[in-house]
Simulated scan of single mutants.
Amino acid sequence: MENQELKHHELQDKIESINKQITELAESCEGDCLKILHVLRELEATHRGVNDNFLSPALPTNRHRLYLLVRHMEEMGGWPYIPRMRLKSLCEKLLQEDEEE
Rank of each mutant, 00 (worst) to 15 (best):
N53V: 02
L68T: 12
E24Y: 02
P83L: 09
R86H: 15
E24D: 10
P83Q: 05
C91T: 01
L69I: 00
H8K: 09
E101N: 14
L11T: 11
F54C: 15
L95T: 00
Q4A: 08
L25G: 04
N62S: 05
Q4W: 07
L66C: 09
S89A: 08
N62D: 13
H9Y: 10
L94W: 06
E2W: 07
L68H: 08
L90W: 01
T61A: 13
G77L: 01
I82C: 07
E44P: 01
W79D: 00
T61N: 13
E100H: 04
G77H: 02
K88M: 10
N53Q: 07
E92V: 02
L37F: 12
S28W: 03
G77C: 01
I18C: 12
I22A: 02
P57F: 11
I18T: 13
K14Y: 07
S28N: 06
L69P: 01
V50K: 05
R71P: 00
L55E: 10
G31C: 03
H38L: 15
H8L: 04
L69H: 03
V50A: 06
L11C: 03
P83C: 04
I22P: 04
L69S: 05
S17E: 15
L55S: 14
H64S: 11
Q12E: 11
E2D: 15
L68Q: 10
K93L: 09
L94E: 08
E74G: 06
Q4S: 03
E99G: 09
E99W: 11
P57L: 08
E42M: 11
P83Y: 12
D32C: 06
T46Y: 13
L87E: 12
R41S: 01
H47K: 01
H38Q: 14
T61W: 15
K14T: 07
I36M: 13
F54E: 14
E97N: 00
L37P: 14
L59Q: 10
R84I: 00
L6N: 10
L95P: 00
C91Q: 11
R86E: 12
S56H: 13
A45W: 06
A58K: 07
D98P: 00
H9C: 05
E100N: 09
L37S: 13
L55C: 07
N62E: 09
D52M: 15
A26Q: 09
M85Q: 10
I36A: 12
E30D: 08
M1V: 15
L11E: 14
A26F: 11
W79P: 00
Q12Y: 03
E75H: 01
K88P: 00
A58R: 09
L6Y: 08
M1G: 14
N3H: 11
T61Q: 14
D13A: 12
T23S: 11
E27S: 07
L90S: 02
L95M: 09
K93N: 01
Y81M: 02
E100S: 07
I18E: 15
R71D: 02
H64N: 14
S56V: 15
R86A: 14
K20C: 00
